[in-house]
Design a protein around this nucleic acid. Structure first.
Lengths: 122, 122
DNA sequence: CCGAATCCGTGACGATACTG
DNA sequence: CAGTATCGTCACGGATTCGG
């Protein structure tokens, strides 16, 4: 008497895969990592995630908002201010995605060595 | 007296970002999840990761091998057999990526609800 | 028959210009 | 400041074919 449907990301048609596709993404990871520090306005987010274009930042934030991971707040000021913050659901994602970022930073030397060795053989 | 360079995935030119881009990827996540079960041949991998094309599987595996995350073994048999398995380094990635997959499966209902609510407003 | 290369379309991504 | 609109480029991804 399982009350949970057997979601499985390995199944092509399982909805959970669409969620995995959204969160297993480099831009998502970097944005969530930055938002983990606290509410951030668009401009600061763009500065923190170096190299991201305004278009991709807008699109990614909108997708994250749609999935309920990010809350968007507009303050009617001049100049306008828009802040993004992790939702309760989004906060549960901060640790796993931070772990990915930390993995990349911690093991990059081994990865670079492996690449060099691989490239030398072919 | 830090002996570690300050790798930072948020920095545009930091090499660690290239590693993050490789691991923060839906196909990589699914492949590593399956390889966590043990050495797997190409055909079985293709069957386990439903919907992946042969080309993308080949390319992703090659990139993972290049980064030292996956070991590739060719057995000169008929029919030919090629097995892939996680390297020691790759095994350290299994937990973080499995966590992502489990997150997607555990929270998909909340995500689907959020999407429905979001789409209703616009 | 299994694994990988080839061909080609689509979508992601960045740059720029423009609006509220 | 925070987007939107448009365009051009290119890598991702799928279907197909090739090779062993």
């Amino acid at each position: 008497m399982s009350y949970e449907p057997d979601w499985n990301v390995l199944t092509a048609t399982c909805p959970s895969r669409t969620s995995l596709a959204r969160i297993a993404n480099k831009w998502t990871a970097m944005i969530v990592i930055v938002l983990g520090r606290g509410p951030t306005r668009f401009r600061d987010l763009k500065g923190a995630v170096e190299g991201i274009s305004g278009k991709v930042l807008t699109e990614t934030l909108r997708d994250l908002e749609r999935d309920g991971l990010v809350n968007r707040s507009v303050y009617a000021e001049v100049p306008p201010r828009v802040e993004y913050e992790l939702s309760d659901l989004g906060r549960t994602l901060h640790a796993p995605l931070s772990a990915l970022g930390q993995w990349a930073e911690a093991h990059i030397t081994e990865v670079l060595d492996a690449r060099e060795q691989y490239d030398q053989l072919r």
